[in-house]
Design a protein around this nucleic acid. Structure first.
Lengths: 190, 190
DNA sequence: ATGCTAATGCAAGTCGCCTTGCGTTGCCCG
DNA sequence: CGGGCAACGCAAGGCGACTTGCATTAGCAT
């Protein structure tokens, strides 16, 4: 039985699968390049040649399967849309894979350009559409800034996970949405 | 001239100074433990015995000099207080040292407990006092959550630096404060 | 001053990330 | 059904973080 040489796409899939296995079995620190390569029955050098760095590898593994899509709801009411979206995001950030992805996205890599920022910014950009619809519907002020609003809700979610490593939870996301929508000033007209 | 053996507190100061020098001269990646030790005229082993890890060393160097205090203003108006505070924070986050400190604060260290979270959480906790005063003054809703509001403004600042590495700038901080205070809904009573 | 002890110096070594040069082989194309 | 060539395997090595065991010495108390 020859060592079952894997190449091209099959090798790629085998490595990504091995990476995810190790990731969920032993966590981020357990998924060393050597371990992944061994588990996939591939040489470490090949991994580096294809992915360039451990970071790219893990990130590729994570994003390939973790395409939770984070769908953009369209219920007709801004608050409902935002609550659903950011609740889903909070849920994602409470999973091991979601947290790992966020942590990796934060790592700087001065060598060559990478596509980590894109993962989150893409999704947040799409989220801005919900706000835009709210503006057009007159639910939000005409001069509201969709991007700013999205960042105002997602930012705290991200930094909470990164800084304090605390769970975020759907309730937190909902409170953030309400604060961003209504502000902290006293409600006139009760 | 004997190698001028440094010990105890003098050694500590020499190493921290060398670390800051390298930090500002060559950036985070330039401040390797070996380089810092050499520059301080100290053996690498001694650095590890005293600080335990490179991270602790850099963090110690950063916080020892970078105690910008981030004072809590008290002008009598919430918005003014918040704008001043978060503008100062934004400014800090636009310096190389501030960014380095934030990045290091985000690094997880499963070995032993560390005191990195504290640096930011301390300052944000104190910032909540501004909000509390605003509530007592009636400027804010009685059921407003000081901690949440502080996170709603600081979170985006942090995650912007961490994720997109973009400058934050005072204007961004100010817009966040206004959004959090007034919300995105249309203003009644113009 | 003189000792004692804890704080250094030093050497050697582990581990993970990553690179390079060269031999070997899978795989697609003609 | 062969080539040919890129895609792999392999060995060796560099670099930085970190550890360990042992020799040495600075510095404080006496």
């Amino acid at each position: 039985m020859p060592p079952l040489r894997r190449r091209g796409e099959r090798m790629r899939q085998a490595v990504l699968a091995a990476a995810l296995d190790l990731l969920s079995a032993e966590g981020l620190s357990g998924a060393t390049v050597a371990a992944v390569a061994r588990a996939a029955g591939v040489h470490e050098t090949s991994v580096y040649r294809r992915w360039g760095s451990r970071e790219n590898l893990i990130l590729d593994a994570l994003t390939s399967r973790l395409d939770t899509a984070l769908p953009i709801p369209d219920t007709g009411r801004v608050r409902e849309d935002l609550v659903r979206f950011f609740t889903a995001l909070a849920h994602l950030l409470d999973t091991a894979q979601g947290r790992a992805l966020l942590r990796l996205s934060v790592e700087r890599d001065d060598t060559l350009e990478d596509r980590r920022g894109p993962y989150w910014s893409e999704r947040l950009d799409r989220a801005a559409a919900m706000v835009q619809r709210g503006i057009e519907r007159g639910e939000l002020a005409a001069d509201a800034d969709p991007g700013l609003l999205v960042e105002a809700v997602s930012g705290p979610l991200f930094s909470r996970v990164l800084l304090s490593d605390a769970p975020v939870g759907p309730a937190y996301a909902e409170r953030l949405v309400d604060l961003t929508l209504d502000g902290a000033r006293p409600r006139r007209r009760s």
